[in-house]
Simulated assay, not measured.
Amino acid sequence: MVQKGQFLERSTLVPVGAEVMEGTAHRGKRAPPLLIIPPRPDEGGGMDHVIAAELAWAAASAGFPTLRFNHRGVGASQGKRGKDLALLEDAEAAMRVLLETAGTSAVAVASLHGGAQVALALQARFPSVGGLCLVAPADVDPAVLGRVTCPLLVVQGEGDGRMPRASVSAAVARAGGEFEVIDDAGATFQRNLPQVGHALSTWLQRLSGG
């Protein structure tokens, strides 16, 4: 039995076409629920990434439902590893599961590293993405960030030089979003990881209106 205050994610199956992806979910009563998109498979990442775990814990601790998943061909997810459109299809399938289980019409989406490509494509295609958080985004043209039409949060480590900070900051400002730089941290946040979770939790609470 789960005691009050305990954090327990439950295994979840995410159907995508004829195949099934593995995921883990946490219940919550606040909206919007949070979909966590892992790094792209070619980056070697999955839903068990330490940053994904931190985001799930931070969101769930604040009362928001969460779902994180492994793309097809990663971990115990069925199928072959895909690229671009296939990854978008995976994220769409996970989003639909979260919308159904949480009983909402909109979700917030958080991505890690190259998963930003998938998150941005999902937001551009589906109005049900009501908020976008990109953690340590990579391989994205900063100008694309300026065209995001929903509430946007970008979190970057102070020592992460993969995307130019000035360009990212300017693009996020054009979108009316928020840009958070974590001091003394790199792309993997081996230092000050809890600050990433705090930034996400605070942002989600603003989205919820409370």
Results as ranks from 00 to 15, higher is better:
66 T>C: 09
23 G>N: 04
68 R>T: 01
59 A>F: 05
4 K>F: 13
12 T>K: 04
36 I>E: 00
12 T>V: 13
47 M>I: 06
27 R>W: 09
20 V>T: 13
31 A>D: 08
60 A>H: 05
32 P>T: 01
8 L>E: 14
56 A>S: 12
41 P>M: 03
6 Q>D: 15
36 I>F: 02
46 G>L: 01
48 D>K: 14
57 W>F: 14
65 P>F: 05
52 A>T: 09
46 G>I: 01
26 H>R: 15
7 F>H: 15
4 K>A: 15
51 I>A: 06
39 P>C: 06
68 R>A: 01
53 A>R: 15
6 Q>H: 15
31 A>K: 03
65 P>V: 03
17 G>M: 11
14 V>T: 08
57 W>R: 15
19 E>D: 10
18 A>D: 14
56 A>C: 08
17 G>W: 08
27 R>S: 13
15 P>I: 00
30 R>H: 11
5 G>K: 10
13 L>F: 09
47 M>Y: 09
29 K>E: 15
27 R>T: 13
23 G>M: 06
16 V>I: 08
47 M>W: 07
36 I>R: 00
60 A>V: 06
47 M>Q: 12
59 A>E: 01
11 S>Q: 12
32 P>Q: 02
14 V>N: 00
33 P>Q: 06
44 G>T: 03
11 S>Y: 08
36 I>D: 00
19 E>F: 06
48 D>F: 14
44 G>Y: 01
66 T>N: 09
64 F>R: 04
59 A>I: 09
14 V>H: 01
61 S>D: 09
60 A>W: 09
5 G>H: 12
7 F>E: 11
10 R>K: 10
15 P>E: 00
21 M>N: 07
63 G>F: 05
13 L>A: 11
28 G>D: 06
33 P>T: 04
55 L>S: 03
54 E>R: 06
55 L>Y: 05
44 G>E: 02
62 A>S: 14
18 A>L: 13
41 P>N: 08
53 A>K: 15
47 M>G: 04
64 F>S: 03
24 T>Y: 13
1 M>F: 13
4 K>D: 12
52 A>F: 00
31 A>R: 10
12 T>F: 01
26 H>D: 03
11 S>T: 12
55 L>G: 03
22 E>P: 03
21 M>Y: 01
34 L>D: 02
20 V>N: 05
16 V>C: 07
8 L>K: 14
31 A>W: 05
7 F>K: 12
49 H>E: 13
24 T>W: 13
60 A>Y: 07
53 A>H: 13
1 M>A: 13
57 W>P: 00
30 R>S: 08
60 A>E: 05
3 Q>D: 09
42 D>E: 12
50 V>I: 14
16 V>G: 02
14 V>E: 02
23 G>E: 05
30 R>M: 06
25 A>P: 00
32 P>A: 02
41 P>Y: 02
34 L>P: 03
53 A>F: 07
15 P>T: 00
5 G>L: 10
26 H>S: 14
50 V>Y: 12
23 G>L: 05
4 K>E: 15
55 L>H: 04
68 R>S: 06
32 P>C: 04
68 R>M: 02
27 R>I: 07
